[in-house]
Computed example of a mutant assay.
Amino acid sequence: MFTQHATVRETTGCLLGVVSVAMKSDYERLLDAAREKFQGVVETPSDLGRLIDESSQTLTNWKSRGLPSSKITKLAKIVGVYPAWLEDGTGDKWLPENAAGKIPEPVIPAGASVVAYDNPDELDPDRYVWIDRYDINLSAGCGNIQWVVNQKDPICFRAAWFKFKGLPPEDCKALYVRGRSMEPVLQDYDTVLIDTSKKDIVDGDVYAVCLADEFYIKAVHRKPGAVVLRSYNKDFEDIEVVGEQMNQLCIIGKMVWRGG
């Protein structure tokens, strides 16, 4: 917590005293802005971590040490504020609506070598894993989910990444995101990796789900007697699943990775 001192004087120039005004840290500004922009979605630091894809330990470090300067611009765009305001609280706060939520593209460092592979067979299968992208066909509700492989568009991961994350590659399927309901975290035509072995709901995590004959990628929340499918984009209303609808709800798997 930072403290700014303001000196107060009468018009005669006589010193009346010093008033201490508490200024919030950059971490607190980040959390407050996320709560304001994503009302009902971001309420706790854990919610913030899911939004910006950072661990609880990382957030704890940021709370005590401040946000890393290398992350300021990206974090500011996610929550829709100006980087200068996030960094030190000065200037305008909110970005124009059409600029908010857009995360800058990664930049390849100068001098870095980039090698393109046209064929999966060119990569060492002990070091790399190719995951097919799928479309989902639903018929007769959740009882018949058909995974349709897009043979032309697999995605490559390091095998060590699956080992580090404790994920079974054979249970993971890549899907395209369609629509704006999960912006700014998931943009239209982003790719998500779904672990179909993870079907137990962790409150607030993102899952691929089937409800009746509809497919969704949503943040899933539990409440007494109901399950809530929530969008990050507050222009989209919650879908509350209650009563007999619970029999039509199927958790397909948990999102474990996302990419543009």
Rank of each mutant, 00 (worst) to 15 (best):
P154F: 15
P154S: 08
P154G: 14
P154I: 15
P154R: 15
P154L: 14
I155D: 01
I155H: 04
I155F: 10
I155N: 02
I155Q: 03
C156S: 06
C156I: 09
C156T: 02
F157A: 09
F157W: 14
F157D: 01
F157Q: 09
F157K: 10
F157N: 08
R158H: 15
R158S: 09
R158I: 00
R158F: 14
R158T: 11
R158Y: 12
A159Q: 13
A159N: 04
A159Y: 07
A159C: 02
A159F: 06
A160G: 13
A160V: 15
W161N: 13
W161V: 01
W161S: 10
W161P: 11
W161A: 08
W161I: 15
F162R: 11
F162Q: 11
F162C: 06
F162D: 05
F162H: 06
F162M: 10
F162K: 07
K163I: 08
K163Y: 11
K163V: 12
F164N: 14
K165N: 11
K165T: 03
K165R: 15
K165F: 00
G166I: 09
G166W: 10
G166L: 11
G166E: 07
G166M: 10
G166A: 08
G166T: 08
G166S: 09
L167N: 00
L167T: 13
L167I: 14
P168W: 09
P168K: 14
P168L: 08
P169T: 07
P169A: 01
P169G: 01
E170R: 02
E170V: 02
E170N: 10
E170Q: 13
D171W: 00
D171S: 15
D171A: 14
D171N: 13
D171F: 11
D171C: 06
D171I: 02
D171Q: 12
C172F: 00
C172Y: 04
C172W: 03
C172Q: 01
C172M: 01
K173C: 05
A174F: 06
A174Y: 00
A174G: 10
A174T: 07
A174I: 04
L175D: 01
L175I: 05
L175N: 02
L175F: 15
L175A: 03
Y176C: 10
Y176A: 15
Y176E: 05
V177N: 02
V177A: 03
V177L: 02
R178I: 07
R178M: 03
G179N: 03
G179M: 10
R180E: 10
R180G: 00
R180Q: 06
R180C: 00
R180L: 05
R180V: 01
R180N: 09
R180I: 01
S181K: 11
S181E: 12
S181H: 15
S181Q: 12
E183V: 08
E183T: 15
E183H: 08
E183G: 03
P184E: 07
P184S: 12
V185G: 03
